[in-house]
Design a protein around this nucleic acid. Sequence first.
RNA 1: CGGGAUAUAGCGCAGCCUGGUAGCGCAUCUGCCUGGGGGGCAGAGGGUCGCAGGUUCAAAUCCUGCUAUUCCGACCA
Length: 571
Amino acid sequence: MRTSNYLLSTVKETPSDAEIISHQLMLRAGMVRKLASGLYTWLPTGLRVLRKVENIVREEMDRAGAIEVLMPVVQPADLWHETGRWEKFGPELLRIKDRHQRDFVLGPTHEEVITELVRKEVASYKQLPLNLYQVQTKFRDEVRPRFGVMRAREFTMKDAYSFHTSQECLEKTYQTMFDAYCRIFDRLGLEYRPVIADTGSIGGSASHEFHVLAQSGEDDIVFSDASDYAANIEKAEALAPSEPRAAATQELTQVATPDAKTIEELVAQFDVAIEKTVKTLIVKADEESEHELIALLVRGDHELNEIKAEKIEGIASPLTFATEEEIRAAIGAGPGSLGPVNLPIPVIADRTVAAMNDFSAGANIDGQHFFGINWGRDANEPQVADLRNVVAGDLSPCGQGTLSIARGIEVGHIFQLGDNYSKSMNAAVLNEQGKNQIMTMGCYGIGVSRIVAAAIEQNNDEHGIIWPEAIAPFTVAIIPMNMHKSERVAEVAEQLYQGLREAGVDVLFDDRKERPGVMFKDMELTGIPHTIVIGDRSLDNQVVEYKNRKLGSKEEVAVDAVLGQILAQLN
RNA sequence: CGGGAUAUAGCGCAGCCUGGUAGCGCAUCUGCCUGGGGGGCAGAGGGUCGCAGGUUCAAAUCCUGCUAUUCCGACCA
């Protein structure tokens, strides 16, 4: 490609509404442009990268035995009624009507459509297992699109769905997909981790997420320093403290704390360690419960894990915090002064809290706290559950080592769905006994467009993007110096360009009548891995200059050797 | 959905408080110079000041409403 026939569309200034580095660089490098909130046009450079990611994903899916299909973006509401997700999905599901006033949705995912297809096309166990995938546009009407294509409303996803007659068979395909995903992310050149994950609203049993490690990631993932254990913080179990609860040493005392509405204020104003404080959070109980509200207790310096909390029996799902009015009506004190002593509603304590002694918490009287609280003596032994997020330094749930925490960008997610969808949609085959049997399903997603952003998050410097070789929009850039005056430069550049093209290399020949600085900056911003600089100065010595974007290195290469050397390096 | 901010040339911004000829940098176009790191000189084009009302002799500027964008929070395969 010649830049004179191309739409480079680079910009110098950083658009003011781009928050994270990948979004800024994608705009500056001319990869995407925003059309409306969460909707992006892919410019030629961005599209080249997107296609390269897609192709790697396709190759590995095909290699792993999956078969490509393509399903519509627009889906009839009937299917969503069948699985109950028409009601269950929130406003994130964009619902539309056609001219006959029939309901449709813009597909945020395709479990319904694929299950509809397979239940019609597959009748016998002999046709299974089957793993179908597509690379398709999805639409989710996100509450708050942000970070460019990282969290867009319209995005490209590879989604695969497998069908089986047994759990064993599902597990085998699940493992095959797990391995395929590792190959994909290896080939993409990304630093990533598979982690144990929550299944979220898609449902099912086993699940792993694949995270690209980056500071700007929206998820916390935790690792053991002594084993392969890695999990999303949503899922990571916080073990009970290894030490049993110590005996009480303090008397229960009530203290006026008019200016301490938060744990931070309490710790700042009174001589109490934050590890000796307890936070009391009030949530709604589920409808069957005889109480309206339930109190959840976590240590002052710990965070409630909402995913864990809403899975506890008796707690409303989705988790809903009580309002101040509801709390006052039930307890008679405001949120800043709550605690387990004399609390008229059920109490569930985190494992850590259950093992505490001599702790402080609100007195359920405005402006009052108790110090020296001890379970059994001052408050009934609570129901105990794992309620909190793990923190760095916690023991690993696998039994080996301690945990550390890093930020990750979720780029892949695989699930063992079981019969969640096949059952409600009655997707069955005849088994070996000639009986109808509901199929068991797995589903496997990769955020293709998100990977483009994630790759940049992980590979950039002050000059711009540094593409991993496998997904660079162009592999080699040719920068001629003063080509429009020097025939010698033009000739060498032209020959090298043709040579690289004939060898099938993605090469960008910067034949614009621009000053050198402009060309250097553009190629660096765009992140092209290899650059050849051709100028009279070096041609006098029969050499050209080779620059490596990633290493930042320069070397001189003989004119007649450069093509061979580049080609050798690419293999 | 709650709280805050913003909307002026393609992009980034000033002007608004204190009403009176719409401005700066970059980009674009023309010419000349320059030619190894976003260069210089000279000139040119480009605006419904988000939209709709209101106040006023006069509104980018003051008032009201709306819309969009954005940040924080809640929410989220």
